[in-house]
Computed example of a mutant assay.
Amino acid sequence: MGTVRILRVYEEPEAGEYRVLVDRLWPRGVSKSKVDLWLKEIAPSTAVRSAFDHVAERFEAFEDDYTQELSHNPEVPRLHELIAAHEKLVLLYGAKDPLQNQAAVLLNFLNTTS
């Protein structure tokens, strides 16, 4: 099984990393060549994302809601397959906060359910 980390889509990945964008919306100003796969179906639903709206006080509720969605998301097994197939995989996100974003929640979910 490969290693997985998160990285803001505007930052440079390490050499050899398979880059998976986990945002529902394509980030502004990002070339498609910066991403190997756009897995928007694993991103939080529009309702959950909008309720959070990147307000720090709402992150705990967002984390709970998104984790609940992930527990029923049919793309999670596909992501596990991608992780197994790549030595290094990076989950890309567009949010400014490196701690309170969907990629951080997704990585925590993957680490606790694998």
Rank of each mutant, 00 (worst) to 15 (best):
L92Y: 10
G94R: 08
L25D: 01
L92D: 13
P44A: 04
H86W: 10
L92N: 05
V76N: 10
R28W: 09
R8W: 10
D23C: 01
K32L: 01
Q102V: 10
L106G: 08
N111A: 11
V20A: 02
L89Y: 06
N111R: 03
F109C: 05
K96G: 15
I83A: 02
E69D: 03
D97G: 03
A103G: 09
R5H: 08
E41N: 10
K40S: 15
M1R: 08
Q100V: 04
S50H: 12
P27Q: 06
L91W: 06
A56H: 04
D53M: 04
G2I: 14
E14H: 14
P77R: 01
D53E: 02
L82H: 14
M1S: 15
A43G: 13
S71T: 09
I6F: 02
A56G: 11
K32T: 11
Q68L: 07
E81K: 11
A51S: 14
I83V: 15
L107D: 10
L91M: 03
E41V: 05
E87G: 13
R78F: 15
D64Q: 09
N101C: 03
A103M: 04
V20N: 03
L110F: 13
D23H: 09
A61I: 04
P44Y: 13
K88G: 12
L39V: 07
S33Q: 07
R8G: 03
R5Y: 08
R28M: 10
E12V: 11
D64M: 09
D97Q: 04
A85T: 00
L99W: 11
L92V: 12
L110D: 14
R28G: 09
V48W: 00
S114K: 03
E87R: 04
N108H: 15
S45G: 05
R78S: 05
D36E: 11
T46G: 00
A56W: 04
A56T: 15
F109W: 13
L37T: 06
L39Q: 10
T112N: 15
S31Q: 06
E81M: 01
R49T: 05
A43P: 11
V55N: 12
L92Q: 04
L82N: 13
A47W: 09
A15Q: 07
E81I: 01
E41R: 12
A56N: 06
E60I: 00
A61F: 09
R49E: 00
S71Q: 13
V30Y: 03
I42E: 05
R5P: 05
V90G: 07
R49K: 05
S50M: 02
L21N: 02
L106S: 11
E87F: 00
A61G: 08
V90F: 04
T3H: 12
V76R: 09
A56K: 13
S114N: 14
R24S: 14
N111W: 06
K96F: 11
V22K: 00
P74R: 01
L82G: 09
L106V: 14
K32Y: 02
E57Y: 09
V76G: 14
A61C: 00
D97S: 03
F59E: 04
L70I: 12
A47R: 08
A47N: 03
R24N: 14
L39W: 13
V48N: 05
A95F: 07
E12S: 09
